[in-house]
């Protein structure tokens, strides 16, 4: 009796595996990558599925930008994804690893911008911040006032950072290092903030590596709190703690304007117009990458790209702008749509 059962189970497994193998010719688009781009790509995927009865709705996995490229660069063939979402441009090392696995023709599509905001609860007075203030408050090592020697960050309140700011404890909730939002924050705020100090400019001439580390390292003494990848959680914590500031994507600010406010940075308010104009300093481009070798093999990729670059989706009044994506300027958008249509690959 037991043997029979066992044999049955083994047989069942084998048949199922066989069925799986037979069906491995995929008839839907498989997308992986950034959790920041996920809300936008899923919206396009759903619209695409609804509008085209002949194609299945694409499958969108949220793996993070780096994890997405790892899968995307795994090779050419139905078991590998067709499209990768990214909240930053593809790195040189990733292009190389792609090429090693035979993935050479990659189409890069810039879909728009995302703003990164520093926000606080509406219950407190807004603080006009600058990039310099943010760096001084968050860097691990800062130049000592007066001597300019690098010391462990001594600042406990915003007033110590900048006498014009209130005497509030510095407490910032932000994403962990695995997040694309964190990468972008470091690149757009920390890297620029440190350049305002003579000490670091000099250090850059003598020891570039050290200077980069000083610029980018965020303090670890409990002032900067890693609050996880879930931006909704940061919003909730800000509401509960009016003293804290939070760092997250613009779309979460837009959805919660009744509870939180975006702080001005260098005097610019984080809103749709300012990010679209490029006035707001902390914004980054978002991308999707398409494997050209899969076009024509997996049905619908061309049509999906057309939907993603259409005015209906990424235009000024497109449905993605309602979801918080900041559209590209008109001319650039037309250029991107034309390049995408011709499947123009990246030049190595």
């Amino acid at each position: 009796m037991l043997k029979q059962k066992l044999a049955l189970a083994v047989a069942a497994t084998l048949t199922l595996a066989g069925v799986a193998h037979a069906q491995s010719a995929r008839d839907y688009i498989s997308i992986v990558g950034s959790s920041t781009v996920y809300p936008f790509t899923t919206t396009v995927a759903e619209q695409f599925g609804k509008a085209n009865a002949s194609f299945k709705t694409p499958k969108v996995e949220s793996t993070g930008t780096g994890g997405g490229f790892k899968l995307f660069c795994g090779g050419v063939g139905v078991q590998h994804p067709d499209v990768s979402n990214a909240s930053r441009a593809i790195k040189k090392s990733e292009i190389e690893s792609c090429a090693k696995n035979g993935v050479t023709d990659i189409v890069e599509i810039n879909i728009g911008f995302d703003g990164i905001v520093v926000a606080s609860s509406k219950k407190t007075k807004p603080m006009p911040l600058t990039i310099k203030d943010l760096w001084l408050a968050l860097a691990k090592e800062v130049p000592e006032p007066g001597t300019g020697k690098l010391v462990a960050n001594p600042f406990k309140t915003w007033q110590e950072v900048n006498p014009e700011l209130p005497a509030k404890k510095i407490e910032v909730l932000g994403p962990p290092p695995t997040s694309g939002t964190r990468d972008a924050f470091v690149e757009l705020v920390m890297d620029h903030g440190c350049k305002e100090f003579a000490t670091i400019k000099e250090l850059e001439k003598t020891d570039e590596k050290k200077a980069k580390a000083v610029c980018q390292t965020i303090r670890e003494d409990g002032v900067f709190i890693e609050a996880g990848e879930n931006d909704n959680l940061i919003v909730q914590k800000l509401v509960a703690n009016p003293n804290a500031l939070g760092i997250f994507g613009f779309s979460f600010l837009e959805e919660n304007l009744d509870k939180i406010q975006g702080e001005t940075i260098n005097g610019v308010t984080p809103n749709f117009e300012n990010i679209a104009d490029g006035k707001y300093p902390v914004s980054r481009p978002l991308f999707i990458y398409v494997k050209k070798a899969h076009v024509g093999v997996i049905p619908g990729i061309k049509e999906f790209i057309a939907e993603f670059t259409s005015e209906k989706a990424v235009g000024d009044d497109g449905y993605l702008s309602k979801k918080g994506l900041i559209p590209l300027p008109d001319a650039k958008r037309k250029q991107v749509a034309a390049d995408a249509k011709n499947l123009k690959t990246m030049t190595p």
């Binding site: 199922l16 069925v19 799986a20 069906q23 839907y28 498989s30 996920y38 790509t41 899923t42 995927a45 759903e46 599925g49 299945k56 709705t57 499958k59 969108v60 996995e61 949220s62 793996t63």
Partner: peptide, 14 residues
């Protein structure tokens, strides 16, 4: 962990 609109109909559907 994926966005899937179509309701799966077999063991191999996403």
């Amino acid at each position: 962990v994926a966005f899937i609109v179509d309701v799966p109909k077999s063991f191999t559907d996403p």
